[in-house]
Design a protein around this nucleic acid. Structure first.
Lengths: 223, 223
DNA sequence: CCGCGGGGAACTGTATACAGAACCGCCAGG
DNA sequence: CCTGGCGGTTCTGTATACAGTTCCCCGCGG
């Protein structure tokens, strides 16, 4: 693997998983030393991050781009039409049997969620599989290109809101409904199900947790 | 201006305006010599082009990415929901007076189009102004980020289909209708007008040349 | 005549050296 | 005490040197 790829992957995960906070300066010499690569491949990694929106030029050098729960609304304003378009296309072009099988998996996903922590990862993997199958079925590279940055940013804010089993169970039912509609080749129903799911997802993300109303805005000084 | 910016701009326009054809190899030494920059900034320009989808890695090095009229349908499948979302947001958040003024300019745009070739450029500039105002009014950076690559690819295929005055006049009326709806703050009507416009645009792009890759050929068999 | 292997050339990937520019802090003046 | 200019320092932007790899071409053998 190329050094620039390693640098990109490491920096990307550092940003998405909040080890690097918004506003943190990504200095070339510092990061290249930390990641064990030279400045040239690190610069390529940085330009990729900037193109993706995870970093932004700020004066001299680039910083981790700002994001907050306030941006979630903006993100969903774009995500909604894109995902709806995706499921409409998938309903017309996809293989119904495939989605029917996925729907059954979602119907049985309650066991995964109520499991201990390992099961939740399995559920997230299931969701990712459905997303991938929708992408494949939609068969439109430009749609993918448009969705990719949106999903990246969403992965970033999702870390702010801890999913609880209650929400995950509801999410599983919503995904099951989407998969069922796709299995039936019903584009209208698939889009409606997606709208329901995205509405509930957004509402869940925006509802602050009691006792921790502003988790993304705390400023901790390193000791 | 930085050397990497110059290299990026030059390569980008070379690709969009078909001076570099799909499949052409973008060799680092060759291009850096041609553009008068060193390999380091040229590499940054190349990675930006790859991120944008205008170039793609191919074996050793990168090549100009393939595109064709077949891709227009895919592009519009993504463009339609994005532009509809944009005008809906703009109708709610934008300044009505601004769009009303633009609508009047479109109503008077017939003179521009029937002018000799210089006027057509002025008309294209007017369209670009409306796009910009919609972007500003939508006030959503992620929507912009999703639309940018789509518009880039569209600019590339648009060069395949030469607009004729007849289509431009119809286009002006459609844009006027969109601007009017935005001036009235009518999101539903704005979206409907946008759908009409995109439908006609797609139909125009797909109609003229099933097997006529050379834009210099006349296609006036219909009179 | 065709296939295969080796050598060479050229290209990419990486590291590093150098120059220009921006930021920070200090000092002097009001 | 505040402010403005100035110098030092450090960083980015760029160029270039070097190494590894891959591709191509030529020659040799079947």
């Amino acid at each position: 693997m190329r050094a620039s790829d390693r640098a990109y992957s490491l920096l990307r995960s550092d940003i998405v998983e909040w080890r690097l906070a918004p506003g943190d300066l990504l200095a070339e010499v510092e990061q290249s030393a930390r990641l064990g690569v030279s400045r040239t491949p690190l610069r390529e990694a940085l330009s990729r991050l900037v193109a993706e929106g995870l970093a932004a030029p700020a004066g001299r050098g680039v910083v981790v781009s700002a994001i907050s729960l306030a941006a979630v609304t903006d993100l969903f304003e774009v995500r909604l039409p894109l995902e709806c378009a995706a499921v409409r296309l998938a309903a017309h072009r996809g293989d119904p049997a495939l989605f029917t099988a996925l729907a059954e998996e979602f119907a049985a996903a309650g066991r995964l969620i109520e499991d201990d922590d390992g099961g939740q990862d399995a559920y997230y993997a299931l969701v990712a599989r459905l997303d991938r199958e929708i992408d494949d079925a939609a068969r439109n590279p430009y749609l993918l290109q448009a969705q990719k940055p949106i999903r990246t940013h969403l992965a970033r804010v999702r870390r702010l809101a801890r999913d609880n089993p209650r929400r995950l169970l509801a999410s599983a039912r919503e995904h099951e409904q989407i998969a069922l509609a796709l299995g039936a080749g019903n584009a209208e129903l698939a889009e409606a199900s997606m709208r329901v799911h995205l509405h509930n997802s957004l509402q869940h993300l925006r509802s602050p947790l009691p006792g921790d109303p502003d988790p993304h805005h705390r400023e901790e000084h390193h000791g």
